[in-house]
Design a binder for these strands. Structure first.
Lengths: 117, 117
DNA sequence: GTATTACATCGACAGACGTGATTGTTATTG
DNA sequence: CAATAACAATCACGTCTGTCGATGTAATAC
């Protein structure tokens, strides 16, 4: 619910002056914002969000071959999304034989989650 | 910490067969994923994330004229970011005289926040 | 009325994005 | 060895993004 605080009643200013002094400042600094925005951006695609959901709920490693049939996209596109999640530091992978297993990095979502709460 | 569940030992399959049956499924359905991804995408820019931080911590309406000096971007670019946040359903605005006041819509971040926790 | 302020919209640009077809790499099977 | 499977990397494509300058719009001050 918006609350009008009436901290600085606004009036039109003479030429060259600002309308008002800023009274609010971000509590999140630039570095934090960059880190959290990178994570949020990686989650900003429905397929990637569902991918993280699957990997997280599974609480272990998941083979790529199990992920492909879950989504209506080609295998290279899925590989591309997994790569994006890895670049953002959300997941990591391990190769064993022919198969690649992905898992969510612990605490990778913690900073963003804490800020959102 | 990745835990190898060894649920389906993988072996190379004859031609035409899949390597394995999927044993994991998303718990988040497509509609939820679309909504949350839209919010996450809007937060996927450091300036927009800091904007939401300012608006949220202020717990009320904030004049655009107070936001402009906080960021090293032009006024049209800031307006563009605010428009993105509004389109994503995160903020709303109200005009009074020359000034526009923005505020975070209550519970707009709730679904994503709950999923992340 | 004119001038000025606050904000939004438009036009343009380089760069990133999501997608799939194709190709490449690596490991296993026979 | 050759053939095949699983996955990644490359290329191409249309679309979206972040940015700014210029312009538009509405309200206030004179």
């Amino acid at each position: 619910m918006p609350v009008d605080l009436e901290l600085t009643p606004k009036t039109k200013r003479p030429a060259g002056e600002r309308c008002c002094e800023p009274i609010v400042y971000p509590e999140v600094d630039r570095a934090q914002a960059l880190r959290m925005a990178e994570v949020a951006k990686a989650l900003g695609d429905p397929i990637r969000l569902q991918l993280v959901d699957v990997l997280r709920k599974h609480a272990g490693e998941v083979c790529v071959c199990e992920l492909v049939p879950l989504f209506d996209i080609s295998q290279p596109t899925l590989s591309h999304h997994l790569n994006k999640l890895r670049t953002a530091g959300i997941v990591n992978s391990e190769r064993r034989g022919l198969w690649a297993y992905y898992y969510v990095i612990p605490d990778a979502l913690h900073e963003l989650s804490a800020w959102l709460t």
